[in-house]
């Protein structure tokens, strides 16, 4: 973990959308690139609000940043595998949004990879349902898209 000397040695207070306040060390906060610029101006009385992040997600993010082993890549892999293992797809999606918003070092990749694995080799309908995306193609447009790339639509897993 890249421990960066922060001008403020005090802990940083982060407030989630559901009103919980988390105190984290500057070393941890520094790894959230979105709030990084705010840290040097803050002191112990400052609270940084995170409108896109729920308490559960921030808990997980802090757990990740604190728990991630600094040493061997294999240890990191094992830790990351364990970290995403217990998350439900719903939690993964929420966490991805939070992580994407905070731009958390390392975790962005991990989450994107994990989510990507969930939609690997799935049908278009499954992906839409999974992400709650509304199909705004007209049937004709969609048929045209599928026709163009017909080769890619063989052998999709069952939903």
């Amino acid at each position: 973990m890249a421990e960066k000397a922060s001008p403020s040695s005090n802990s940083i207070s982060l407030k989630t959308v559901d009103g919980k306040i988390f105190k984290v060390s500057p070393a941890i906060a520094n790894q959230m690139l979105t709030i990084q610029p705010l840290i040097k101006d803050s002191d112990s009385s400052t609270i940084i609000s995170l409108p896109d992040v729920a308490a559960f997600h921030l808990t997980k993010i802090i757990e990740y940043l604190e728990g991630k082993p600094a040493a061997a890549p294999s240890a990191v892999d094992a830790f990351e595998a364990q970290f995403v293992k217990d998350l439900s797809p719903e939690e993964l999606k929420g966490l991805l949004i939070a992580v994407g918003y905070l731009k958390v070092n390392g975790l962005v990749d991990l989450m994107a990879n994990t989510v990507a694995k969930l939609i690997e080799n799935k049908s278009v309908e499954y992906v839409r349902k999974f992400f709650g995306v509304v199909n705004d193609f007209t049937p004709a447009e969609e048929a045209k898209c599928r026709q163009e790339h017909a080769w890619a639509f063989d052998g999709v897993d069952e939903d």
């Binding site: 991805l96 994407g100 990507a116 080799n121 992906v127 599928r146 790339h149 639509f153």
Partner: peptide
Amino acid sequence: LLSLDCDILAMIFTFLDMFDLVHCSVV
């Protein structure tokens, strides 16, 4: 995930192979 900006989506797409990318392009 619509609330995600395209950077995050693109990040997910990075991990997909061509087949899945084509699927996603029809979503």
